[in-house]
Amino acid sequence: MAVSFLARDVSDLCLGKPPLRSLSAAATVADALDALKSSDGEIHVSVWSFENEVGRCVGKLCMVDVICYLCREDNLLSPSKSLKEPLSSILPKDHNLVVHLQPSSSLLEAIDLILQGAQNFVVPILPTKRSGVSRRKQQHQKASSTINSHSSCEFCWLTQEDVIRFLLGSIGVFTPLPALSIDSLGIVSSDVLAIDYYSPASSTVGAISKSLAQQTSVAIVDSDGTFIGEISPFTLACCDETVAAAMATLSAGDLMAYIDCGGPPEDLVRVVKARLKEKNLEKMLQEFTILSSCESSQLASSSSSSDEESTTRTPARSGRLARSSSYSARMVRKAEAIVCHPKSSLVAVMIQAIAHRVNYLWVIEDDCSLVGIVTFSNMLKVFREHLETM
């Protein structure tokens, strides 16, 4: 039954999905910034390259790409100039992260591609079913056609989350796999991106870029390896480009607080202002083409005194994870992170990730020591291996 289930067409996972927003690869970083800030809830934009009138999606960008790009040393000195550069300056070099799939491709094919490194799929949106024309015939016609231009056909994103959500809807066909613990399944990876709480936030830029490509996150730990929180690309993607100033001046721990929900604390805004002046970067915010009205007003009203006392923050060490009726509750300190225990079942972890819209969960012990991370691709691997044994 599981075999036939995974033979389903990926078009079944795309029903009701909105068409993706797009930019030409010939556009500038400023164009991407404008598109991202004018979006209506969508935090990504697709980038397309055209050759002989054949279009192909070559990347998926969000605000994190722009922020990390602006954090480069040369760009900090002249943000306005850097925004005029072509999108190739911020596009991931690995174009295999985004893969085109036809609507008639199977779910199993999509899973295999994910296990090979694909992070997102671009799938043509099938036209509305017409009288006398079967859906299967439409799929066959679409599969045999060439994408001649982005404007002639609409596309949607198909993500790892979509695949996991679809599997979760019929999880019973994989019994007894879902009830097994993630520890016993061997899907907890110890290869994590982790930064010390007191490290400069600027040292996290490379890790953040890598976590974005891997659809994971950067753990913030103390000297004892205790998990404090995370710097999540998803959270950063909901910020604006002025966060680059915070990344250039704050510690990793303070950056967590700066990007947390509710806006940056006023004391940290003052610290950023003072340290920008110390580094002769005080004018960098003025050069951004578009500023967040909230943050820009806070920064403008902040004291510019160079002897402003910098706040040194101590990570919370209350030790225990706040629990609801289970182990899996949100961990709220400087930032929110979704965590689980090594003995959590596979299905429980899947439900947690889907409920909180993340592609991963941090795995921690009772004393909050970091064990590792479990990702959607880890989960899909065991489903694929389970299928091979049937």
Rank of each mutant, 00 (worst) to 15 (best):
S104A: 14
S88K: 07
H95I: 06
I125Y: 02
S104W: 00
L97T: 13
I147F: 03
P103T: 07
N96D: 15
A143W: 03
Q116A: 12
D94S: 13
E109P: 02
E109S: 07
A143V: 05
P92M: 09
I114W: 04
V123R: 00
S104D: 08
I90R: 00
H100F: 14
S105A: 15
G117D: 07
Q141H: 04
P124Q: 06
L113P: 03
V123K: 04
S104V: 05
G117Y: 10
A143N: 15
A110L: 03
D112C: 05
P86T: 03
D112F: 02
N96K: 15
S131N: 09
L126R: 07
L126Y: 06
I147A: 02
Q139Y: 05
N148Y: 09
N120I: 00
L87M: 08
K137S: 07
H140F: 05
L113Y: 07
S131Q: 14
D112T: 08
G132N: 11
S131E: 07
S149C: 11
T146W: 04
Q102Y: 04
Q119K: 15
P103L: 08
V133R: 10
L113V: 04
L115S: 12
S89M: 04
S106Q: 10
S145V: 08
S149T: 14
V133M: 12
S105M: 01
K129I: 14
R130C: 10
